[in-house]
């Protein structure tokens, strides 16, 4: 059984991601205790809440998380959880992220309605990304966010899929054993569940 720890760093719905991962065959623990990382095959940064709250949690847990990744542990960041993996965010001030991906989290442009809410298409750039196995180009996934991950030039190779909403932004990124999606796979119907399943499959290999 693959053991996944979902970090409870904010306030919001964690039930749907737990259900989604369990349906994909994982054993799921929701916790804010960083010590639980020792027993985990993979960790998930869920996608709810605002950056400042989550950054507070991250400031005291960044080191064990970094060593978990360095030793080959897998990580999936969802929505806000993806943004936490970047260098810094401008949401509600300036807050440090994990800096695993170089880049800045910035607000969506004001020529579109904010938040970006609803089902939008992804344009796949890297079909080799394990998360996107058997996912077609142009698939619709559920987004709900006001900020996006503006990746630095050095991260071109980390972008696996993009989405257009006022601006073209990365909707799936990965590097090594770390994956992240701007959309919510746990709220994207059967396609989203397939992506979660792909993540669990990746851990098994």
């Amino acid at each position: 059984m693959v053991r996944v720890v979902v970090f409870d760093y904010a306030v919001g719905n964690l039930r749907s991601i737990k259900n989604g991962l369990e349906r994909s065959g994982a054993e799921v623990l929701i916790t804010s205790e960083i010590a639980e990382i020792k027993k985990a095959d993979a960790i998930v940064f869920p996608g709810v809440g605002a950056f400042p709250e989550a950054a507070k949690w991250l400031s005291s847990t960044a080191d064990p998380i970094k060593s978990f990744i360095a030793s080959g542990g897998a990580l999936l960041g969802i929505c806000l959880g993806m943004q936490l993996l970047l260098t810094m965010s401008t949401e509600g001030g300036l807050y440090k992220g994990l800096d695993y991906f170089k880049g800045l989290v910035v607000r969506l442009p004001s020529n579109v309605k904010i938040p970006h809410i609803g089902w939008n298409t992804i344009k796949i750039r890297d079909y080799g990304c394990p998360l996107l196995e058997d996912i077609s180009d142009g698939s619709l996934l559920y987004f709900v966010h006001s900020y996006y991950a503006k990746m630095s030039d050095v991260e071109v190779g980390s972008i696996d899929a993009e989405t257009l909403y006022g601006v073209v932004f990365p909707s799936v990124i990965s590097k090594g054993s770390v994956f992240a999606t701007q959309f919510h796979p746990e709220r994207s119907g059967e396609i989203g569940l397939k992506i979660l399943k792909n993540f669990i499959q990746y851990i098994r290999r």
């Binding site: 306030v11 919001g12 709810v48 809440g49 605002a50 709250e53 806000l80 966010h145 006001s146």
Partner: peptide, 8 residues
């Protein structure tokens, strides 16, 4: 909206 985010 400050605690949970506007989106919810």
């Amino acid at each position: 909206s400050e605690i949970f985010g506007s989106q919810c």
